[in-house]
Amino acid sequence: MKIVLTVNGETVRADIEPRVHLADFLREHLSLTGTHLGCEHGVCGACTVRLDGALVRACLVLAVQADGCSVETIEGLSDSGEIADLQKAFHDRNALQCGYCTPGMLIAAQDLLLHDQDPSRAAIREHLSGNYCRCTGYHAIVDAVAATAAERNRGRPG
């Protein structure tokens, strides 16, 4: 099936089988391998991307369902500088070891910070509850998100 979509601001055309989910499409067809595949049934959050601005699991969206939509991946958010401060906070606080969950964590955390400028630690944990980390532990990740929120608030007028 022929599809046309926007990925990180660029128009992409493809002819793909309906069974290909968006995560495989990004990885295998567009070589955007920052979107990771963990469980492939919506539990682990490693494949989290933005679809028309909304946080989604790329393993639970068919590429054909994304036809006509705008997709933003960790490569897009990284290259634009939108999450540079969040990435630095993750780095500073050792909020990653193997890094497998990190792209999904960053996108989910940025989604929270866009909707809630001053989230409590409980709110951060709840928002990231669908993203598994199996090596670092969540404490440093929550620290990094909280520190980024505080830093952004310092930069805001009033």
Binding site: G42, G45, T48, L51, A54, L55, V56, R57, L60, V61, A108, D111, L112, H127, S129, G130
Partner: peptide, 9 residues
């Protein structure tokens, strides 16, 4: 109901 990234879909 599930997680934020599930609720959006």
């Amino acid at each position: 109901v599930a997680h934020p990234a599930i609720r959006t879909r």
